[in-house]
Amino acid sequence: NRRKMVSPGVGEHPLQYNYTFWYSRRTPSRPASSQSYEQNIRQIGSVASVEQFWRLYSHLVRPGDLSGHSDFHLFKEGIKPMWEDDSNRNGGKWIIRLRKGLASRFWENIILAMVGEQFMVGEEICGAVVSIRFQEDILSIWNRTSNDQTTTSRIRDTLRRVLNLPTNTIMEYKTHNDSLRDNSSFRNTKISL
């Protein structure tokens, strides 16, 4: 059930990779089993050029205007935003917790850095997620190989630069294996200053 690959239109600026936007929402009381997660996640569309990116992105609700427990995901085409996907199973993610009111701006900056190939880590980046929650919002960027410290450090340093984070911002890394084990995306993380 893979959708047809998109390609850049005439005169458009191609991206290094095609990306797919996804949206998910769940009732917080329901347990987040991987099956219910997959049922609650929807593809919005794919983009292959800068212009296609803006056409799609400009029509989406800003994440800061979403209510409840919802997420936007932007992943390389062909990679599902799930821990179990082949591209993700040995990977992990950097987590940045945001106070309310910052999600829209930080989400835009992180995805512009991703589609513009600012991270310089080869094929390592899988996608980015903004998670709207009740007390705080959470930004994360997923990479393929959680035990490659050169890569994860470079991603962390690029995040600091492109998001203009203060040097004392707490950043947390969590492997998808650990997320699977405790069935939680954001608990029991490894803190890095």
């Binding site: 005169g11 458009e12 600026h13 290094q16 800068v50 803006w54 512009l112 589609v115 513009g116 600012q118």
Partner: peptide
């Protein structure tokens, strides 16, 4: 191969292009 790299300023500039509407 060559990587296609765009900085934020360039990407934001493309937003107003008629092709991006």
């Amino acid at each position: 191969g060559t990587r296609i790299i765009y900085d934020r300023k360039f990407l934001l500039g493309c937003r107003s292009s008629p092709l991006a509407k």
